[in-house]
Amino acid sequence: MIVRIMGEGQWEVADSHFPELNKLDDELLAEMESGDGAGFRSTLGALLDAIRRLGEPLPDDALEPSELILPSPDATLDEVRELLSDDGLIPG
């Protein structure tokens, strides 16, 4: 799956990594619902770091359609709320 981190670029992430990513996404959703700003910031950073660690970065000149778009590391709680679906940032 091609994942874009807004303001950074794209990574190709194998489907086998999505259980780990979904766990972080579930934590992020719970922190957002409870208004835990510090937890939200920490978990968002961990989710984006996992994408960078587990994925293969695409070249800057690659124009692949992103199947998943994640917020930038400095996104606010309100900005991320606008991106959420019922499943969180990562469907499934």
Rank of each mutant, 00 (worst) to 15 (best):
Q10M: 14
K23L: 13
E56G: 00
V80Y: 03
D87W: 03
E82L: 14
P73N: 05
I69C: 06
E79D: 12
L63M: 13
P73R: 15
A75D: 04
V80W: 03
T43L: 06
F18P: 02
A50D: 05
P73W: 00
L89P: 01
L21D: 05
G35Q: 08
M6W: 07
T76D: 03
E67W: 02
I90D: 00
I51A: 05
S85D: 09
H17V: 08
T43E: 06
W11P: 01
P91A: 11
D61C: 00
I2V: 15
L44Y: 10
I51W: 05
P19A: 09
G7V: 06
G39T: 05
P65T: 10
D26Y: 01
S16L: 15
I69K: 09
S42K: 15
P19T: 05
L63Y: 14
L29I: 11
M6T: 13
L21F: 06
S66N: 04
L68I: 07
E27T: 12
R81V: 06
A75I: 03
L29C: 07
L70T: 00
S85F: 01
E33D: 13
S42H: 12
S34G: 07
D15W: 08
L29Q: 12
W11A: 01
S34L: 13
A46F: 10
P65Q: 11
D25S: 15
M1I: 06
L68H: 01
I69R: 12
L44K: 11
P71Q: 07
E67V: 01
I69P: 01
S72T: 08
P65E: 14
P57S: 05
W11G: 02
R81K: 12
R4Y: 05
Q10V: 09
R41D: 13
E56L: 13
H17W: 15
D74C: 02
L89W: 01
V3D: 08
L63E: 14
R53H: 13
Q10I: 00
G35R: 06
E82W: 01
R53Q: 14
I2H: 09
L63I: 11
N22E: 12
L83G: 04
I5H: 05
S42M: 12
P19R: 03
S85T: 15
T43P: 05
S34D: 13
A14S: 14
S66A: 15
E64W: 08
K23V: 13
L70A: 06
E67A: 14
K23A: 15
V80G: 02
S85V: 07
P65F: 01
R41W: 00
F40L: 08
E8N: 07
I2K: 08
G39Y: 09
M32R: 08
E33K: 14
N22K: 15
E64T: 10
Q10F: 03
E79H: 03
Q10G: 02
E27W: 06
D25H: 00
P65D: 13
L68F: 03
L48Y: 08
F40I: 10
D36C: 04
A46M: 14
R41V: 07
E27A: 12
E27L: 12
E33V: 09
M32W: 06
L47T: 04
E12D: 09
E20A: 14
P91G: 14
L77E: 10
E33Y: 07
I90P: 00
G39C: 09
E27H: 11
F40T: 09
L21W: 03
D60L: 12
F18C: 04
G37K: 14
A38M: 12
